[in-house]
């Protein structure tokens, strides 16, 4: 079994574990649709009656969820939620306010890149047959069912977000450079330095990263902001090396962090 398969098996077991009440975590995604899909996943993973709270920049939304069903919007509701909906049971997917709630959530999630999630016990439970099954929500809310990005997609998303006016990058698979970005001169300079860096990196990798991880990255920057800094990412069997001005290298690390932070 590969390390990746072992990790997937572990994650599958963790998904079966009931989350402790109040345990906080974050949904990350680019855009309202991705975040709303993450909320649907949270509903789909909730079996016992819970008050799921989703914290956004525009306010916190509280949902009553049980048996993998969205049962109600709970008070207090932030501005923009449908009038008179808080506390009212959503009997099934035919209820028009279910779609209205989806639109209101999308508006709330616009311009947000992370949503804080916590769950507490639901004090006033609705009937177990009340509510919209999570599997029906993607259709009525017009979002794609949540799907974890593959390592290749994650790396592609990261590299496509780099400003190649300032940065140069090489995507490496095995021992081959399979793609590059940036000006010809910058890519040339990076190609010249990449082998030097990788030689030192792999000879000391075990000292820097003692615990196995699906994804890891290394940022090394000189003093001052004008010189070039180096950023190297590995995810599964894929990797990429980036040269960018030191002044902007933390923003690049943050972009990667948002894609892979657990």
């Amino acid at each position: 079994m590969t390390d990746f398969a072992r990790l997937e098996e572990k994650l599958a077991k963790l998904r079966q574990r009931e989350r402790a009440p109040g345990e906080g975590r974050k949904i990350r995604g680019a855009g309202a649709d991705a975040l709303l899909a993450g909320i649907v996943t949270e509903i789909d993973e909730t079996i016992l009656p819970r008050r799921l709270s989703f914290e956004t920049a525009g306010g916190t939304v509280h949902l009553a969820v049980a048996n993998r069903r969205l049962q109600a919007l709970l008070a207090p509701a932030p501005n923009g939620m449908p009038d008179g909906l808080a506390g009212e049971a959503l009997p099934d997917v035919e209820e028009p306010k279910v779609a209205e709630l989806g639109q209101a959530l999308k508006s709330l999630l616009a311009n947000t890149d992370a949503v804080g999630v916590s769950a507490t016990r639901l004090t006033d439970a609705f009937g177990s047959d009340i509510g919209v099954p999570a599997e029906q929500l993607p259709r009525v809310w017009t979002v794609a069912a949540a799907k974890a990005a593959t390592p290749a997609e994650t790396l592609e998303t990261f590299l496509s977000g780099l400003d190649t006016g300032n940065a140069a990058w090489l995507r490496i698979e095995g021992e081959e450079v399979v793609a590059s970005g940036g000006s010809e001169d910058a890519v040339g300079a990076l190609t010249e330095q990449a082998a030097v860096f990788l030689d030192g990196y792999f000879s000391k990798f075990d000292v820097a990263f003692r615990d196995p991880a699906l994804a890891c990255c290394t940022l090394i920057a000189p003093p001052g902001g004008s010189d070039i800094a180096l950023f190297f990412v590995e995810i599964d069997t894929l990797s990429a090396i980036v040269h960018a001005p030191a002044a902007g290298i933390l923003a690049i690390a943050t972009a990667w962090q948002r894609l892979v932070a657990e």
Binding site: A213, C216, A221, G224
Partner: peptide, 8 residues
């Protein structure tokens, strides 16, 4: 001056 080693 600066180094960051990051995992998930």
């Amino acid at each position: 001056e600066l180094a960051v080693l990051m995992t998930g």
